[in-house]
Amino acid sequence: MNQQELIAMLGRISKIMVENRNYLIELDSVVGDSDLGLTMTDGFQAAYDAVSDGSEPDLGKLLYKAGKTMGNKVPSTMGTLMAAGLMRAGKTLKGKTELSGTDVTALFEAYEAGVADLGKAKLGDKTFLDGFHPGVQVLKAGVEAGESLEEVFEKAALAAWEGFEHTTTMIAVHGRAATRGEASRSLKDPGAAVAALIMKAFADK
């Protein structure tokens, strides 16, 4: 994956958030304060705009800049978490001007770690991670098996969406949803929806 392909990926994430803005607002209106669709749209647009001119050849620095810009633009809880993911990925890939399949796996693993460390969440807590982690695992396995990134992203997107759907079996541990206790179990987690959409953006052309 070269610089222009990575920038295009960020552009597709921004686009998919715009397309699903109302859906995210609807999900968040049940368990949050209804601003998720707006913060994800504004945040990922800012991240893309910050690097879209292609002036940064170092792909690690590019991702870090995108994340830092996003964090400044949407300093909400979820905005800060998504920014942390981009910035951690940037630190991990610093010095790279081209990404191999293994590097792409490292990007996603670092993104997950950045979100998990800042959010102090773990799998099963009904968060972004429950949508993202299944996709990352499928991505890693596919790359290690020598599959093309195109094939791998399609499978990862499906796994992430299934992970999002599976959040209806979990009790929320974080945020406003946690105050509902057992009643939170049947609700779909908005953060996991964002994770599934990010994965879908990488699969879409």
Rank of each mutant, 00 (worst) to 15 (best):
S76D: 10
L107T: 02
Y64T: 15
F108Y: 03
K120G: 10
G114Q: 05
T102S: 04
G90T: 06
V104C: 00
M82S: 02
G67C: 11
T69Y: 15
M82D: 06
E98P: 02
K96S: 06
G101S: 09
G90V: 09
A106L: 04
M70Q: 11
A121Y: 07
L93F: 07
K94V: 03
G95L: 01
V115G: 05
K94E: 15
G95H: 01
M82W: 08
L93G: 05
L93W: 09
A110E: 07
V74N: 13
R88P: 00
G119T: 14
R88N: 05
A121W: 05
V104M: 03
M78T: 06
G79L: 08
D117I: 08
L86N: 01
T92L: 04
S76M: 04
L99K: 02
Y111R: 02
L107G: 00
T102M: 04
A113W: 07
V104I: 09
G95V: 01
S76V: 02
M78C: 05
T92R: 13
T92I: 00
T69I: 12
M70A: 03
A84H: 08
A113F: 01
G85R: 12
K120F: 09
P75E: 15
S76F: 12
F108N: 03
A110K: 03
M70D: 06
D117L: 10
R88G: 00
L118G: 00
A106N: 09
D103W: 09
P75G: 11
T77W: 13
A116K: 14
K68W: 10
P75H: 13
G90Y: 09
D117E: 13
Y111I: 04
K68Y: 14
L81M: 09
E98N: 03
D117F: 07
M78L: 11
T97A: 00
D117K: 13
G101K: 07
D117Q: 10
D117Y: 01
L99N: 02
K120L: 11
Y64W: 13
E109P: 05
A89T: 06
K94Q: 14
A89Y: 04
L99M: 03
T69D: 15
G71C: 10
S100G: 05
V115C: 06
A83L: 11
A113Q: 13
N72Q: 15
L107P: 01
K91E: 12
R88F: 01
G119F: 10
E109H: 06
V74I: 15
L107R: 07
K68Q: 15
T105N: 08
G95Y: 04
K96R: 08
M87W: 06
M82E: 07
Y111L: 12
G90N: 11
S100L: 02
K65M: 13
M78F: 14
K94T: 08
P75L: 13
Y111W: 09
L107N: 01
L118M: 12
K91S: 03
T77C: 09
K120N: 11
S76Y: 13
M70W: 07
A66T: 08
K68S: 15
K65E: 14
T105P: 03
A83M: 12
K96V: 00
G114L: 04
G85V: 02
L107A: 02
A116W: 03
T77K: 13
G71D: 12
G101E: 12
